[in-house]
Each structure stands twice: as structure tokens, then as C-alpha cells.
Design a binder for these strands. Sequence first.
DNA 1: ATCGAAAATGTATAAATATACAAAATGAAG
DNA 2: CTTCATTTTGTATATTTATACATTTTCGAT
Lengths: 160, 160
Amino acid sequence: MKNRTKRQLAIKQAILNSRISCQDELLHIMKDQGFELTQATLSRDLKILKVAKVSDQALGYIYVIPEGVNTENQRENSRINFLADGFRDLQFSGNLAVIKTMPGYASSIAVVIDNAEPYEIIGTIAGDDTILVILREGITHSDLVNSLILIMPKLEDKLG
Amino acid sequence: MKNRTKRQLAIKQAILNSRISCQDELLHIMKDQGFELTQATLSRDLKILKVAKVSDQALGYIYVIPEGVNTENQRENSRINFLADGFRDLQFSGNLAVIKTMPGYASSIAVVIDNAEPYEIIGTIAGDDTILVILREGITHSDLVNSLILIMPKLEDKLG
DNA sequence: ATCGAAAATGTATAAATATACAAAATGAAG
DNA sequence: CTTCATTTTGTATATTTATACATTTTCGAT
């Protein structure tokens, strides 16, 4: 997955997990996680993610992922969650991975994966209930698992 | 009603009605409406109202009243809306107003009115289905109607 | 009315954030 | 591999917002 996308997912996670009150604070969190970026990039990411800042009972201001407002992302998320339900199984053979899905789900799930453009994956081919995933050289099986969870968080239940 | 409360209601209205992208813009709107205030006060009001700022498709940033976040106000609002349903009738006699309510509603509604501390009202006395409202000298009947609508917006249907 | 305490506000400024511009990175087409 | 166009990012800075401090207002008790 492109670095930018990965970073933005991490930002979302950080905001959901903790009370962050300014971009500098978030900047440090991201750098601790190994991301290299500046406040300017962060500001742009927050804009793209539609992160909002609201006052938090006496604790000043914190960032939040708005719900009512965020209809677009909301819909996209629930679509991805829905599709994740179609996931059945994941098996490896060398630099190939085979995902088994419920009938009819394979191509939709493959589209989600392709759109995320994960660095770990060179390409996918989907049938009706099977997705063939070609891994980049040097990518381990657990790298792929992590990558898939980043794309479809709900898979954590089935893979973690 | 205290000036601060009135101003904050007006701010909320302005944010709901139009796309406002910074405090200076909002400041002008408020001044046009006759409010006297500075950016500092505005900043404090926005904090109290839990107004958030999110990016709005290509139009930069705008202020919004968040829904998911704002649970406290949310509950309070729906409580007030619920009580407004108990309103039956409003009649005047000189500097007195008599509100008739459904049985049992009078004292709850009176509490809502008292808490808002409207300037127009000196005091209220509530029985079971009747509220006596004593108006301040010089207050017209339509002043009172407006004041009540500010406190319980849903009354607009029954009074406007 | 007069006092004192608490709340609200303004002024001035510090802190936080967005963005213009330039440079670097990425990707597509030859 | 080049070249050109597009996207992404950093630097530096302007804009925007929050707040410390001082002042004024409000309100209850005397």
C-alpha cells in the first residue's frame, strides 16, 4: 500500500485510540511509529481524513473522527466491513497467497485490495470465490497479514 | 434570557444556516445581527458549544455542529423537544401570560424556562397544567413569544 | 445602595494550523 | 532509460485560534 495511505490509516487509528490535542503531539506519535513527516503533511492528512477538533470536557481540545458529518467515509467503511464478512480463509504457497471467500465476494474484495495499492502485493486475480494474491519479493506471510488487516480492519478477528 | 445564552443560540443558528470558514467571518455575521463581541469571546463560545471544524469538499474548512460527539447537548435538546410537545396554549393579560400544558407538564416546562433565565421574564409559577409567567415591564407579547421560541424551538410550530 | 465573589469579556499575544511556493518523488508514455 | 505530467512533501510563512492577564459586569448578601 502506498506510504501515504498507510500513514493516514495510522493517523486514524491514533486518533481513535487516544486523546490527541494538537498536531505536534500527533506528529511525535507518528514519528515514534517510524513515519517520517512534518506538521504540514499532517495538516493535509487531517484535512483529507476530515478529522475534526472539538472541546473535551475541561481537557481542552482533542481530535475526533466525526460520525454524523463523515457520511462518505462512513459508507465506504461499512461497505468494506460488509465485504470482510465474505472472507473465509487465507493460505500461502511460496510467494503466492490464496484467499477463499463466500461465493460471489471474491472480485469485490479484490477491488478493495487493489485500490489500497499495498506495497506488499504486486497484483491480484479474482474468480468467484477465490482470490490469487501475488506477493512482492521479500515479503513475509505476516507482512501480508498485517497489510490485509490495515486495509480491512475487520479481518483482524479472522486472522489475528 | 442572558445575553450570552442568546448570543450562543444565534451562533448555533448561523453555523447551521451557512458555511462559515473562520471566526472572523462569523464575527461579522454576529455584529450584523447587533451583537457586540470580539474574536476571543467567539472562540470561547465555540468551545462551549462544541463546534467543530472540518474540511468541506474543496471549499476549505467550515464549522459544523457535530452530532455523534455532542451527546450531552443532544440529550438535553431531545428532552426539551419532548417537553415542548406538552404545550397547549398561551394567553396574555397585561403583563401576565398563562401557559396551559398537558397534565403534569407544567412544572417541567417551567424549569426549562427558568434555567434559560430569559430577560423578558421576571418569574414563573407552575401548577400541574398551568404556568403563570410574569413579564418584565415594557416587554411586548411578541417579545415573549420570540423568547419562548428561542428556549424551545419546537414551539415555533404552535406559536408562529 | 455598597461590598465582595464569581462570571464574562476585551486586549494583547502565544500557540496552533493551513497554505503558497519550490523541490522531490512517482508514474505513464515513448 | 529519458522525458513530461502529476502527485506528494518540506520549508517558510500567513492565517487562524486559544488563552493569560486585566478589566468590567453581574448578582447575591448585607
